[in-house]
Design a protein around this nucleic acid. Sequence first.
RNA 1: GGAGGGGUGGCAGAGCGGUCGAAUGCGGCGGUCUCGAAAACCGUUUCGGGCCUCUGGGUCCGACGAGGGUUCAAAUCCCUCCCCCUCCGCCA
Length: 400
Amino acid sequence: MIDLRAARADPEGFRVAVERKGGGEPFDRLMAVDAHWRELIPQVDELRGRQKLKGKPTPEQVEELKQVKADLQRLEAELAEAESEREELLRLVPNPPHESVPDEATGDAEGDVVREVGERPQLADPKEHLELGRYEMERGARLSGSRFGYIVGDAARLSLALYFWALDRVSAQGFEPVIPPVLVREEAMYGTGFFPAERFEIYEIADEGLYLTGTSEVALAGLHMSEILDADELPLRYTAFSTNFRREAGAAGRDTRGMFRVHQFNKVEMFAYVLPEESWDEHERLLEIEESLARELGLPYRVVNIEARELSAAAAKRYDIEAWFPSQERYREITSASNTTDYQARRLGIRYRGDGGTEYIHTLNGTAVTDRWALAILENFQGEVPEVLREFGAPERVRA
RNA sequence: GGAGGGGUGGCAGAGCGGUCGAAUGCGGCGGUCUCGAAAACCGUUUCGGGCCUCUGGGUCCGACGAGGGUUCAAAUCCCUCCCCCUCCGCCA
């Protein structure tokens, strides 16, 4: 959530920033409700003060106190309503985007193309991943429905090698490996900003009140929820392997072939808790790690600075890496690195104790690898596997 | 899944419905002592919000797992939920 005090101090500035992500309307309502709340709170505080006694009241005092109680009940009800309205609106207002985030895309990308790296392979008739590896889509659909598949044989070995390779490289950069829960409570979903904005994307276990995470970002952000960390133990960096579940409800008809967009996939994710003044450096650092992974495999890619309206509620800025997919003749997203600044930390109550008292930390997340990387490897190298993955169990060549 | 017990400050652990934001111990911080340190002694030590402010702070309100309720008044009584522990059952 946003910093209410900062918003009060500069409502016009906030309004402009938040409107870039389409959050102007809830922001206006938030400011109105907050003003009402601030009118009520001193009145309620005053009455509560009168209600406090040192010892047993005389009968006359009890009569007086009953009147105080009546007034208080009325005002407190009004206050409670203002508070719950404010809560609700606070959940709706997105994190303002950073100044460096563009408003308009330059070309075919969902933002500004920062750079293109590597050479696209010259392939006369590129095969797609379904021809190159054994991905059992029809059997997957028979078992679980559309957008489910089995990854079998060499393709499975390739994916497993990718996870281990990525964990190796990322943990060498100081990220602690984690295997997190993938079922979480509603509060973790709200805390990370996936609720209410992206509720439609999330699978729910209604009986238990639990939700399947679409990314281990949720569990990694939740790892320290409602904690006060020591400034000198920051930054905290984690990397998690997990299976991710997404309903892909907004993607009807898109990417329906093969394993490209499925309801269940595996991912190695990076997550960092940092001091506020360090988060923009950390964001660049996450991007650099992601790029180093793509470069080490020799994947042709480009980096995109995502435009404001495409950012999630939580993200103040986001870089995607898009790999070239020869069969589609275009770049497609394979990673995403976001600086959520203090937005998740506020919602989850994650602070640190420094010299100037307690303050909210900043959180960031970024993809290391996903199953989609295996598809990019297959398509760009037409079945050949980069040498570096062999020692992690990948086959020399993937056969369907 | 069944049966019990319990959730209080960084930790441990008290707390007749009012004078309790909360005893005490440990830890932390500052000081005295010391060449220095330890010990001892003295002091200090939660978080959030509103308003004021000479930006040091002041003041009032809220918070004893969470949310409701009873009461003039709740850490203390009642209800719901969450979490932890013990025993039994089940299980990779």
